[in-house]
């Protein structure tokens, strides 16, 4: 943890990872899209609409994964005061919001033809909408203060408090009856998805993960540069 907390060291490591994560994203995306759109069968019940799963489910995973990352980074920032942790949390929020938004919209596009409705206020859909609001609230809060460190601290508290929503989303389909169906891939025992459909699903999930890593590197670099710009300006203003 301490090794990567140093921004200069992070930048050096990121420089090594970036071409790999970007390249892997392209390769995994190409394979996942090919299998998802052309190389996989239609579902016995849902027909071709099952292909929406290959973007809907990975974006839902990422919405939860990015938020968990953000909560861990926030805890590290609050407890150990690592300079990089706040930056990672701030850089993650818009990406997580993007994934969650995609999950909600693609879910609506899938729900309309299959369930018969764009939206239902069941526990799964509602808790996912709350996740989007948590991301948006975090983005607004972090930028709401003149002093960036105070903004980061407020954001970290919000991210940690909002973490209770993550297990609620995951288990909402088991704790309450919902319109949304229960988990398929992570259910105990065998996944309930045919291998021909599981392969593109997992490929797309990996592609989204490497894409997130790529975006995170770009955004952290951007944030670190902005911090340095602020520091130099501060020195100028205060007569350095």
């Amino acid at each position: 943890m301490h090794r990567f907390a140093n921004p200069a060291r992070f930048l050096r490591a990121a420089q090594l990872v970036l071409p790999w994560s970007a390249g892997l994203t392209v390769a995994l995306l190409a394979a996942g899209l090919y299998l998802g759109l052309l190389g996989s069968p239609a579902d016995y019940q849902q027909g071709e609409t099952v292909r929406i799963m290959y973007v809907h489910v990975p974006s839902a995973w990422m919405g939860l994964f990015v938020y968990s990352n953000m909560a861990i980074a926030s805890a590290v920032a609050l407890i150990w005061k690592h300079p990089l942790a706040d930056v990672v949390a701030k850089a993650s929020a818009p990406v997580g919001a993007g994934f969650t938004f995609v999950c909600l919209v693609t879910g609506a596009l899938w729900g309309k033809p299959m369930w018969g409705t764009w939206w239902a206020w069941d526990a799964r859909l509602t808790s996912m909408l709350i996740l989007l609001f948590l991301y948006l609230g975090h983005m607004a809060l972090v930028n709401a203060f003149d002093d960036p460190t105070r903004g980061a601290k407020a954001g970290a508290v919000l991210a940690l408090a909002g973490f209770v929503n993550v297990p609620i989303i995951k288990y909402s389909v088991d704790w309450w009856n919902t319109l949304h169906q229960p988990a398929s891939v992570t259910r105990v025992g065998m996944p309930a998805v045919d291998p021909a459909m599981l392969t593109p699903l997992l490929l797309m999930g990996l592609a989204f993960t490497t894409f997130f890593v790529t975006l995170l590197i770009l955004r952290v670099r951007s944030e670190l540069a902005a911090t340095k710009i602020r520091a130099i300006r501060m020195v100028q203003v205060h007569g350095g």
């Binding site: 579902d43 799963m53 045919d194």
Partner: peptide, 18 residues
């Protein structure tokens, strides 16, 4: 007044189901 369909967590091609 409104009827919605709920589906289960199984996804498979028609041939496999048959």
């Amino acid at each position: 007044a409104e009827v919605l369909a709920k589906h289960d967590e199984n996804y498979m091609p028609k041939e496999v189901a048959d």
